[in-house]
Design a protein around this nucleic acid. Structure first.
Lengths: 135, 135
DNA sequence: AGGATAATTAGACAAAGTCTAGTATTTTGT
DNA sequence: ACAAAATACTAGACTTTGTCTAATTATCCT
């Protein structure tokens, strides 16, 4: 699938989001790349050439996308949150010395998880393999 | 094992850490409870009664303990880091609506992880089950 | 078009964590 | 035990990520 502005508008509408200029640009930044971006990276991408989108809008929009289930939040780096346009179940590798974050592909199985206490519902299961470069 | 100041001093020395007043108090805060504490929680515990330990020392000391492998860092909450005095392999459950973080007990197996790219070494594998209270 | 609603903005603010330069404590060598 | 050297601690300024607010602008609906 190609991420034209048109397609992105449709995608936004499908998620119940009003497609505005800024939202389209932010979604485009996330979906046209296949990377995990932090809020300030999104901000930088969207505002190359002319400043177009404010910090507040970037943060608001990312949280909106999150709530609507269009993207996923990754709490991995101690200093900032990354956003992942891929919402299908998959896991991550984090290079602690460089801050690089990448997907782990493959058929990963997790067994032996005890049942949840009553009243709790699973939101997601995050598996992060922390690695570093050999010295 | 009981966490007397004496025992904690020995533990610090075993990890190659010079046991000072502040370090003993911080280690005591972490090890005498069996909880995951954030830096400001440690700060608050250590400074009940009289203010004794500065913010800089709390942060420096926690990082020192980390480097020496005496505690473990948990990147789970988007706003703060938690420190875990239990360094044996185990996993966590995080209640996203309350911020509560707890251990998962049981024999959890993770299979299907692909081999690491050459030059990379595993630091650790973190598994976090994110849950919320049913509405 | 025009009023209502929704979205965006600049900039002030908050909180976690880092850094610095000076002071205090601890250790070491004699 | 004492002085010098090394290590540790401190207050407070600073940085960074993210939030909030009140005012402005864009969009939608009839």
């Amino acid at each position: 699938m190609e991420y034209t502005r048109e397609n992105i508008s449709t995608k936004l509408r499908n998620h119940g989001i009003n497609p505005t200029h800024q939202r389209i640009e932010i979604a485009h930044a996330l979906f046209s790349r296949h990377e995990h971006l932090s809020a300030d990276q999104v901000m930088a991408i969207v505002n190359t050439r002319h400043a177009e989108t404010s910090k507040a809008t970037v943060y608001n929009t990312l949280r909106l996308f999150l709530e609507k289930g269009m993207i996923r939040e990754l709490v991995v780096d101690p200093t900032k949150i990354f956003f992942d346009p891929n919402t299908t179940p998959h896991h991550h590798m984090y290079e602690v010395d460089t801050g690089r974050l990448s997907d782990i592909h493959g058929d990963i199985q997790i067994t032996g998880l005890p049942p949840l206490p009553p009243g709790l519902v699973t939101e997601g299961v995050d598996l992060i393999v922390r690695v570093r470069h050999a010295s």
